[in-house]
Design a protein around this nucleic acid. Structure first.
Lengths: 235, 235
DNA sequence: GGAGCGATTTGCTCCGGCGCAAATATGCTG
DNA sequence: CAGCATATTTGCGCCGGAGCAAATCGCTCC
């Protein structure tokens, strides 16, 4: 991983949170950010932690997962470079509603509530960007709710895979490769099923040549076929 | 229903969207709102409609439901007096992601995208309020996702009932009454189960005296007991 | 009061997929 | 390279709850 190549205002300018901001504002954003490097599998924050900050991934991937009192968990989403996380809790509980764990070695920036509020008052565009981001995630959450309530496990896994491809897909000769390591358990927790069921489904698809996994890296070889499964009412 | 009693700046000042705004700004808000009365069961907008506006309920209740391509649907939430709806799509698709139907005769205000943006630029507090509102809904959606993925139908119905009581509960001598008519199908679509299963569960609870329904109006008589069911890992 | 319609209840069957358990594969560590 | 830990695969039994069907209830409108 490059050491400091990303710690420039230019990088912050490219983040979804700071879209359409004048250069002067970007300078302030960059200046007030606290940047940290976190190791693979390290926790950035835990569900229930107080003293929340707004975070953004500079490089790497973070898994956001919510755990129930019974230990069962759901992966809320994966956060890639340029995306923000943990920001919603600033405006609600002042407690993180989920865990954040780095899937790979990750470089992460964050701002305190006071800093972000100050930035937003000075630049309403930031607030509008936040609304845009959270809004998209809310729509996605509602779609997933509908899927969970009405579709079978196979279709949900298909949707999960497609969503991952859209969010973190990298085109290769072999197909679309998900840019970060993905355990079967992760896929299960995204799709809302069990490790066992997810394993069965994915293995079947591997046998059929729809996708491939090598060292926890998943490549979608026939997106169209998986899309067919996702839409197929017969399951 | 009172005819025009609510069409005053005072009412808008009490809405979650316009919290902490100076009186002058409230005047502008009130002036630019388009107010409409909609009949029981009438649709305010349909999933996929373009030309979106931001809406707020002045009086009445609106059901927001998302329908899948197969016809199955999930109730995203019920919108009561003072709450906003349809606002998220302004910042994302410019298409409504769900249907909005009035459950009872309802008075509803709305603003165009341009109007709301202008208000937000002038008053960043409005944008912050929007973030607060959407953030809370996102958290709720994520909780429901976890429930749908990990809990059985009984617990989900219990959570749904408790959530409704919290949002729209009115204390009566008999217990907490949900302020709007609620069909079994509605409960099923909130909890993510079928009409039949929801009916069985609710009827069993009625027999046990945990709740009562009279003319589609649900009263929670023993919230603590329902909360116990909601948390009970045995189901 | 009767007809008609939607909502609700309830019985029954069937199956997807969860839970348990064990075998196997794969990657790390020393 | 051996040994261990973690991840994955796979078999099997069982059950929650979806799906179908039918009866009953309760309104509303003649």
């Amino acid at each position: 991983m490059s050491k400091d190549a990303h710690l420039t205002p230019q990088f912050f300018a490219g983040m979804e949170l700071f879209r359409d901001l004048p250069p002067a504002a970007i300078e302030k954003v960059a200046a007030s950010a606290r940047v940290r490097r976190v190791a693979r599998e390290a926790r950035i924050f835990n569900q229930g932690d107080a003293g929340v900050r707004a975070h953004a991934v500079i490089e790497g991937v973070v898994r956001i997962a919510q755990t129930g009192s019974d230990g069962a968990q759901v992966v809320v989403r994966f956060i890639g470079a340029g995306e923000i996380f943990g920001a919603v809790s600033l405006f609600t509980d002042a407690r993180y509603p989920a865990d954040a764990v780095a899937l790979v070695e990750t470089l992460e920036a964050s701002w305190s509530e006071a800093e972000l509020l100050e930035l937003m008052i000075a630049q309403p565009q930031i607030a509008i960007n936040v609304i845009h981001i959270i809004g998209k995630r809310l729509q996605e959450a509602q779609e997933r709710m509908r899927e969970l309530a009405t579709q079978g496990a196979t279709r949900r896994v298909a949707h999960a895979v497609l969503r991952l491809g859209r969010q973190a897909g990298r085109e290769t000769a072999d197909g679309t490769e998900i840019a970060f390591p993905l355990r079967r358990k992760d896929v299960a927790d995204i799709a809302g099923t069990t490790l066992h069921t997810a394993s069965r489904i994915l293995t079947a698809w591997e046998s059929a040549g729809l996708l491939a996994t090598r060292n926890q890296h998943l490549t979608i070889r026939q997106p169209s076929e998986i899309a067919r499964i996702a839409e197929d009412a017969s399951d």
